[in-house]
């Protein structure tokens, strides 16, 4: 049970965004993929969730290839992608945003249970249920986006820069929540971040991307303490 990416290459037209990238995330682990703006992090996640085609290479989840599958099918099979920019549907209410996975999930009882769990996890959402998602603050939107993904009972969660544009206190809260989810729900998480420090602190594994290529893969702890990595990519 693991996410295995090998020799993956992804192009945007003539631009090569991801070049021959390989890494593995074992089941139940949290992997942080860190890199500067433009490193190719978003492109990588979009390919893993079926939104974008790969040029070559492979990616599999629990042994099944996920390249070329449709995003809605991957979502239904437990791979949830929370895309960048606080992916909520602003025109819908908070309740309706949360209800999206419930449209196709058969086990309605569990949908109700998952919804109440999410509201327990993010109580603020419970107070905002009938408000439009567009009226939420940045942090609340991020919680809503993660909450919506959880209602699908995902096995693999792909998070694209959940910390972007949020106040440090909120970032800390969201990172801690993510860390606790991994254990509680037996999730596998790929966390894409520019905030390398914060991400590596909660992660088991770290992958450092630079201009589309992997420059370091190691345990998060080792990466945090590696002077070369610190100097070049963590900036301290």
């Amino acid at each position: 049970m693991s996410l295995v990416v090998s020799n993956l290459t992804i192009d945007h037209g003539a631009i090569r965004a991801i070049n021959n990238v390989s890494f593995t995330v074992p089941q139940g682990q949290l992997a942080a993929i860190i890199g500067a703006n433009g490193a190719g992090k978003t492109t990588l996640l979009r390919t893993l969730s079926g939104l974008k085609e790969a040029a070559s290479g492979s990616a599999s989840w629990n042994g099944d290839s996920i390249l070329g599958a449709r995003p809605e099918d991957l979502a239904r099979s437990g791979i949830m992608h929370v895309s960048d920019g606080k992916s909520v549907i602003a025109e819908l209410s908070v309740k309706e945003n949360l209800a999206l996975p419930g449209i196709w999930r058969k086990d309605k009882k569990d949908v109700a249970l998952a919804t109440s769990e999410v509201i327990e996890l993010f109580p603020i959402l419970g107070q905002r249920l009938s408000q439009s998602a567009g009226s939420l603050s940045g942090g609340e939107r991020q919680m809503l986006a993660i909450g919506r993904a959880l209602i699908a009972r995902p096995k693999l969660l792909l998070l694209d820069e959940p910390s972007l544009g949020l106040a440090p206190l909120i970032v800390e809260q969201i990172f801690q929540t993510i860390k606790s989810l991994v254990k509680k729900m037996n999730l596998t998480v790929v966390l894409v971040e520019q905030n390398a420090m914060g991400a590596l602190k909660i992660a088991d594994e770290g992958v450092v991307l630079n201009l589309g290529s992997v420059v370091a893969v190691d345990s998060a702890e080792k990466l945090l303490n590696d002077p070369a990595v610190r100097a070049a990519y963590l900036g301290f």
Binding site: L51, E72, M80, S83, E91, P101, W104
Partner: peptide, 12 residues
């Protein structure tokens, strides 16, 4: 409103 988010939420 948002085909992409709908797809990522599992909607066909």
């Amino acid at each position: 409103y948002s085909p992409e988010i709908a797809k990522l939420s599992g909607i066909k």
